[in-house]
């Protein structure tokens, strides 16, 4: 009954395929088949956001997302953000604001903030708090994360003005 199946999807812009079992989650497949470590399982219940990846442009919890459902989708991970040595503005803002300590939750936060700034280019504190409330940072660099979001938003606005 349970048998492997080949799925094809776009991973950080590249077409890929993988032969997987039905029970494998997206985060299993990214870690074990593609050696991508940025999305990682922590709470296992979709509450902490450490496993955040984008599927068809929307953040999802990779630990609750069966990989078969990524068949035909566009999957983007934190590894796809930087262009060569140039980090994404959100990543740069996290570094400048000192918005992390142990770093385990950081890729998940970065991926959420990417989407947050797409939906709310200049978010209020209230919007940021609600948008990111499903991401847990036990080191609790939360004040710095708020700073990082504002910094990234300001940079983005400035870049838009100049463009």
């Amino acid at each position: 009954m349970s048998s492997p199946r080949t799925i094809r999807f776009t991973l950080n812009g590249e077409p890929v395929s993988a032969t997987i079992m039905p029970h494998e989650t997206l985060v299993d497949v990214l870690q074990h088949r593609f050696d991508l470590r940025g999305a990682r399982e922590s709470c296992g219940q979709g509450l902490c956001g450490c496993c955040t990846v984008h599927v068809d442009g929307k953040p999802v919890s990779g630990c609750l997302f069966l990989a078969v459902f990524a068949d035909g989708a566009r999957v983007d991970t934190v590894e796809g953000l930087a262009r060569g040595d140039a980090l994404d503005p959100v990543q740069e803002a996290f570094i400048e604001a000192g918005a992390f300590q142990c770093g385990f939750c950081t890729p998940g936060f970065v991926m959420m903030v990417k989407q947050l700034l797409k939906e709310h280019p200049e978010p209020t504190d209230e919007e940021v708090r609600h948008y990111l409330t499903g991401n847990l940072c036990r080191c609790s660099a939360y004040p710095e994360i708020l700073d990082a979001v504002k910094l990234a938003s300001a940079r983005q606005a400035e870049a838009a003005r100049r463009a």
């Binding site: 470590r37 940025g38 953000l81 570094i95 000192g98 992390f100 950081t106």
Partner: peptide, 16 residues
Amino acid sequence: IPRLEAREKVTGRAEY
């Protein structure tokens, strides 16, 4: 001084 390991952590490459 920014953390020495900052880039590894924001890119998801840090080793655990």
